[in-house]
């Protein structure tokens, strides 16, 4: 039994190889690209919109709203990274409904690469918002003793992010495979439907956790800045 699509190798030359993970990822990317090109042609700027445009606008605005709900002040700034994260994971998971499809998210390499992207994006946005010194200083809060624990936490949560997604998707795929062997009728269909739900939930969790990490890295900056300027902090309840 294959635990990961990485093991399905189509072409290899030394260190370089093309496995099912990469191929299906390209397939997902191709679908996104084609959809985007189709939309670009049909895109209108007036009130007469196509169904595809309406659907995509709804999805994009929903993602933007979610980013904003997490606490990020300028959601469009993070839409490219976080939105792609969600859409990629979601589509990669949803396509499991097609037989023969191997979800790239069922590969620890893919989830780890996504987690590493988040691992890099968090300090990137944190430094961008707060500055290098201020961001690095946040690792010593509330006291300097917390520095190693903060660094460990930063690394461990990245791996947790990768393993959580990988585990869920891989286990779902494995359960379906096992069920196909034990009870090939009806039950795999139910499990596939359950797998779709799990896939969407995992995509949402991955996206939300990444958003929360970035928000934590950037909003701390805001709070610190406000404290330095002696400006009153507006509580969420007061904002409403």
């Amino acid at each position: 039994m294959q635990l990961s699509p990485d093991e399905i190798i189509y072409w290899q030359m030394g260190f370089i190889k093309i496995n099912a993970t990469i191929v299906f990822t390209w397939g997902v990317m191709l679908m996104f690209f084609i959809s985007a090109k189709v939309l670009e042609r049909a895109l209108t700027r007036n009130n007469k919109r196509t169904r595809l445009q309406n659907a995509l606008e709804t999805i994009v605005l929903a993602i933007e709203q979610q980013i904003s709900a997490v606490g990020l002040i300028h959601p469009r700034q993070y839409l490219g990274f976080l939105g792609t994260l969600f859409l990629f994971v979601a589509l990669a998971n949803l396509l499991t409904i097609f037989p023969g499809y191997e979800p790239p998210t069922g590969s620890l390499s893919t989830t780890l690469s996504l987690a590493l992207c988040v691992f890099v994006a968090v300090p990137y946005y944190g430094i961008k918002q707060r500055g290098l010194k201020d961001y690095l200083a946040s690792y010593t809060k509330p006291s300097f003793i917390m520095l190693p624990f903060n660094i460990i936490g930063e690394i461990s949560r990245t791996f947790a992010l990768a393993v959580r997604l990988f585990g869920n998707i891989m286990s779902g795929t494995m359960i379906i495979g096992i069920m196909l062997l034990i009870a090939p009728f009806v039950f795999p269909v139910v499990m596939t439907a359950l797998g779709l739900l799990t896939g969407m939930v995992q995509a949402y969790i991955f996206f939300i956790l990444a958003s929360v990490y970035i928000a934590a890295a950037t909003s701390a900056n805001k709070t610190q800045s406000q404290l330095h300027k002696n400006t009153p902090v507006i509580k969420p309840s007061e904002e409403n």
Binding site: M29, F32, F33, S35, A36, K37, L39, E40, L43, T44, R45, Q53, L56, E57, V60, R76, L79, G80, F81, G83, T84, L87
Partner: peptide, 15 residues
């Protein structure tokens, strides 16, 4: 990320 920013988010948000 670059493709979607270029061909999806950009045009949709602009529209």
């Amino acid at each position: 990320v670059w493709l979607l920013k270029r061909y999806l988010y950009g045009p949709i948000l602009k529209a």
